[in-house]
Simulated scan of single mutants.
Amino acid sequence: MGTPRLTAEPLRWLGAPAPGGLALPAARPNRVQLYAPRGVYVDDRAVVVADTGNHRILIWHGWPETDHQPADVVVGHADFEAEGPGLLHLPTGVAVVEGRLFVADAWHHRILIWDALPEKNGQPPDRVLGQPDLDSTEPNRGAEAGPLGFYWPYGFAYVNGWFYVADTGNRRVLGWRGLPDGHGPPDLVLGQPDMYSHAENRGRGVGADTFRWPHAVVGDGATLYVADAGNHRVLGFTPPPDADRPADLLLGQEGFDRAFELPHIPQGPRRLRFPYSAALCGEHLAVADTANNRVLLFPGPPREGMYPAATGVIGQSNFDDSGENRWQAVRRDTLCWPYGLWCHKNLLAVADSGNNRVLVWRLALS
């Protein structure tokens, strides 16, 4: 018997409707419209979206029952019509961890934490990681790279008792045993020889232990996956590391020393171009193959090895095509620069950033 194929059916569309053809949904901030969302979180009680281009977080309490349903709460601004950087500047990763809302406030070089999912518009955060206080926003706390500061932290994850931050601008992943309090140094650095180095690919070229743009982290007790977008690959560490070491799994490239990217050719089921996110969906790893305008589904999920093939694709009708919205129209089953992913039970939420929307797909084995 072959590996069961994971299929996807579009279930819900959050954001404004598309006017037709390749015209994008409207993006002016209000309770419905999104502008280039880059992060999404879904559970049984809420949907949370990083409405990145509008520098805010939108929250739906309860499952949205209709397409284009208005959000219930906005944070980052006092009301739904405000725009521009304020509390938040290009927020990206979002998740609820042990009842707390975490937001990667990337261009303020910090992660903000609300002790409970906000119920009121404009609710301020309760604590911060990566800065000495809630008023500070300088890269690396206004100094050189070190153990307590961030430079463009685009993603984070809480995996098997560890809290990881994709510290993208410092070309590293930091890890803490347990949820950090903002004061203690991390217990782990991946991608650099120490807590003070920050060179791209360690300053010596792409390898099994280097990053260019580590952008998102996901995993379980068996494997830690890092979407290394700038090197057009995903690295897997099996088992999850407790010290810096080379990866055991490589997706998207034929060798650990490769960072190949060539647009406008048939892409196939193995190649990745700027994979900005990943999510574990049962026995599959979903990867946002962002510049190829698709999500690839790898069975297993893969733990070790090099250059495995995906068995499912979302957003394209086959593995060779890569056009934005298939160069046809903004439809329920097309994608344009899918950015953030989140899996919950049989649901896969996609921050379809180029289409100013979030799509939720129902997954099924066939």
Rank of each mutant, 00 (worst) to 15 (best):
R5P: 00
A8Y: 01
E9P: 03
A16W: 02
P19W: 07
G21T: 03
G21A: 06
P25W: 06
R28G: 14
R31H: 09
V32N: 08
Q33F: 03
Q33E: 14
V40E: 08
D43R: 13
D43W: 07
T52D: 04
N54H: 08
I59G: 01
H61M: 06
G62A: 06
P64G: 00
H68W: 05
A71F: 00
V74E: 05
E81Q: 15
G84T: 04
T92G: 06
V94F: 08
A95H: 04
E98A: 15
G99N: 06
F102D: 02
D105Q: 03
H109T: 07
I111E: 00
L112S: 05
I113D: 01
D115Q: 11
P118M: 09
N121H: 10
Q123C: 11
Q131P: 02
D133C: 05
L134R: 08
P139M: 08
L148E: 07
P153D: 04
A166C: 09
N170D: 11
L188K: 10
V189Q: 11
D194Q: 08
H198Y: 13
E200V: 14
A208C: 04
V218C: 14
G221I: 02
D228Q: 02
D228W: 02
N231R: 09
H232P: 01
F237G: 05
P240L: 10
D242G: 09
P246E: 03
P246N: 05
A247D: 03
F256I: 03
P263F: 12
H264V: 06
Q267Y: 04
R270T: 05
R271C: 07
G282N: 09
E283G: 10
H284V: 10
V287L: 06
N293K: 12
L296H: 00
P299V: 05
G305K: 09
M306E: 11
Q316M: 01
Q316A: 07
S317Y: 13
N318A: 13
D320H: 11
S322M: 12
G323W: 15
Y339E: 15
V350E: 06
R357S: 13
S366E: 15
